[in-house]
Design a protein around this nucleic acid. Sequence first.
DNA 1: AATATTATTTAGACAAATCTAAATAAAATA
DNA 2: TATTTTATTTAGATTTGTCTAAATAATATT
Lengths: 219, 219
Amino acid sequence: MNLTVAEENYIKSIYKLQDGNTVVSTNAIAYELATKPASVTDMAKKLKEKKLIDYEKYQGISLTPEGRKIALQIVRRHRLWECFLVDKLSFSWNEVHEIAEELEHVRSEKLITRLSNFLGNPTTDPHGDPIPDAMGRISKSQPLVSLDKATARRLEVAGVSDQSSSLLEFLNAKGIRLGTQLDIIERYEFDNSVEVKIRNQPAFTLSEQVSKNIMVKSL
Amino acid sequence: MNLTVAEENYIKSIYKLQDGNTVVSTNAIAYELATKPASVTDMAKKLKEKKLIDYEKYQGISLTPEGRKIALQIVRRHRLWECFLVDKLSFSWNEVHEIAEELEHVRSEKLITRLSNFLGNPTTDPHGDPIPDAMGRISKSQPLVSLDKATARRLEVAGVSDQSSSLLEFLNAKGIRLGTQLDIIERYEFDNSVEVKIRNQPAFTLSEQVSKNIMVKSL
DNA sequence: AATATTATTTAGACAAATCTAAATAAAATA
DNA sequence: TATTTTATTTAGATTTGTCTAAATAATATT
């Protein structure tokens, strides 16, 4: 199966968004890839043709076993390169994502096998996320943590522990809701506040009080 | 200057073919990139627009100083990755070209700077070819050697030391002439013969007697 | 249930990179 | 020099991945 970079990116996004057995919406993929829903529909037809996704008009998208296998290969490549950048080239964990995003598309079984070996066959990447093995086996991802304790850089809001309407109102005003993706820009130790950013919007700061109550999972 | 992978590959080919100050022909580039002359003409217009090449209809192509600068960056990336693959991942020199061909298009100044450092800032790649430094400075390439002593994998025929017509006739029959590119497939120690391949043609073997008289330079 | 809103798809267009076939220019040869 | 051959360019088409605007389906709201 020879995939283009664009196709690989779609597969990866669908994998990322398809938590458990749910189906992924056109809109969600478009948002994830910073593209338009119409483009997602177009690509969905191609990936269905290649039997990498299940897709019926208006019914959402999900990976086939074959699609999932490929997604895991891409995730494996991405995370191994992140390890390389951090462990061997002394990058810090927040700089590696963009570069790994490119390196992950270099396809060579042998390269990845040897890279993994060279790195000591790590099982988690610098963000703590598990690295699938060569057979695509991956350990279950971490349980939810509150935003103030999260270690990953890119997070998805998975819940709010304080249901007070004032918090929800505040989050709503900031554009934070279930499924919102956040990037951690900086943590300030003096007050445990955290600066976060939602894709394409200016960064803003959340107090410890708030971040304690936002439950997230890393992406 | 943000270039596509295709544009980078054209720049690299032109650099490779443009030895000294000569101008490069449409056909030569098409052959090098295994594409069609018409496609080269199309791309030439784009690269001229971007001021990376000098190009006038029917007059051949040459890099501008800016184009050359970019070419050297690509060559640098390619050769550093080859070092990495051989030195760190234990690839053999004849396996690395294709993979480096992909890795070279990952653009990140910082990545390349750190990779170079990690490798001990090597000045030649595993084939003995010089690696341009961060400023694009490159040491003069090696003088011609006879094919039986060449260490590089991809060679270009630069001359024949024995001018006997029987040799020239033989070479002609094999499709070897000035400027022909050869890939070394294998060397056989028992008789010092060498198996070579011309792009897209089946491999064939040259005796020591013949290879001694073919002067080559590495590409 | 009727209507409004949101999500998704279709239709038609565009840019990049390529191709083939035909036209034209340059070079080689008779 | 005239002619043939080779190299190069143009014209028009194709594929991939994308877009906008309009149409349609699904969902939410009154």
